[in-house]
Design a protein around this nucleic acid. Sequence first.
DNA 1: GGTCTGCGTTCGGCATTATCGAACCGCTCT
DNA 2: AGAGCGGTTCGATAATGCCGAACGCAGACC
Lengths: 249, 249
Amino acid sequence: MGETIQSVERAAAILRLLASGPRQLGVAELAKALGLPKGTLHGILRTLVRVGFVEQDLATGKYRLGATLLHLGSSYLDVNELRTRSINWADALAGRSRESAWIGTLHEGHVLVIHHVFRPDDSMQTLQVGTYLPTHASALGKVLLAHDPYGEAPAAPLRAYTKATLTDPKALETELDQVRARGWAAEREELTEGEVAIAAPIKDARGIVVGAIGIRGAVERLAPDGALHMEYVSYVRDAARAITRALAR
Amino acid sequence: MGETIQSVERAAAILRLLASGPRQLGVAELAKALGLPKGTLHGILRTLVRVGFVEQDLATGKYRLGATLLHLGSSYLDVNELRTRSINWADALAGRSRESAWIGTLHEGHVLVIHHVFRPDDSMQTLQVGTYLPTHASALGKVLLAHDPYGEAPAAPLRAYTKATLTDPKALETELDQVRARGWAAEREELTEGEVAIAAPIKDARGIVVGAIGIRGAVERLAPDGALHMEYVSYVRDAARAITRALAR
DNA sequence: GGTCTGCGTTCGGCATTATCGAACCGCTCT
DNA sequence: AGAGCGGTTCGATAATGCCGAACGCAGACC
């Protein structure tokens, strides 16, 4: 492998640090975190400010992410083929199921949400596009893990979001076997109390799983008597198959 | 002013070029556009790929934006104070007016949409957060231009989106005077045939306009008899004032 | 109110670092 | 079969960005 440009890599590390928390960071904090001299960081920060990737708080002098990144991020959505080809199917899925629909991809060990359709008749929800979901505690994540060509084991300690979260790697592996066998995944209050999700894999022309689509909603609607209503499962699988077909040509 | 780091600036220029169109770009194209040797660009691109800001098409070798940018962009939303403080008011505005609500800021000569609430009971719409609106052909843009402290004249040739778009700089200036005088702006089918918008300014603690909030909807509902229904205007102005108050403390 | 600690910022010498252009390879189209 | 066009590699060169010490300004703390 070839070499990589130092300053660009450092700039990226700064941006990732600034994105990791809602707090603004100062030069000194960044210097400590990255193990670099303050002067070096200041030079990179000055450049990042000039190109709009970072903004500086005039009062405190601390740094935060800049507005240009928001626009770059939304440009990514236009470029992403999986998203543009599947938007219509996600709408249809949300309409049929009357639940919120989600599309995600595996990215750096998380599920990156690349599309999100609100539940019909219930629009006051915050949009989740661009956010991460945990792989081991979401239906989308289970689907993506189960079909991950690299078979990355999910990051070591599985965080418990609720009492139902699968925290034992062996239990998760069993679950993934099941997902592979039946072709879809469920998640029952493993991420948020009272919410249930269903997801199925989307494959590209070569048959490789490139994403997952699913729905998420209240346990009372999706699994009222403790068991999933299978019609929801077929809605999700229909949508996944339709997108897979669309990607094939 | 101090110096800036060459390679980081070039990396930013590459990202902006990749974001400027939905097309993937090759090394040669980028080299021509930026007037740099291919080898130089390749080095930067290799680094950008490694940090996930750019992805390379395995088939064609061309480059496109990467998924990490989507996540960074959504992180910006968490950091942006204007947005976090005004989300609830935007929801309320959408609820009262039963139209879609929008919040935007001035950014590099455009209106950057930082929040967007769908119209109630009509959720199958695509989200516009992160996209640009033209300043001269949107209600949000007129408000922001009218109160821009730097008074940047809108970029030279005013593009006509519909027959009603204000393309004459003098006409626009007159309109902006009116916006300043009455404290809100309207846009009647100047961006999209059949759609009307209303917006009002949001000020920070120092009284400087930092953003705008507004609604957008079908002309039949907002201005049925050719004249704007003034109750919509008061909904918007109420929301703007409420946010301004919230930012004051 | 004075000191002190911490911040962001500036500066210039040094050598590390990225730049550059030519050469390379695989592909497509002629 | 060749030419032309992609993306990629490579190594010499000197320009480049790195670093650490010094600066000025706050605010905190006696």
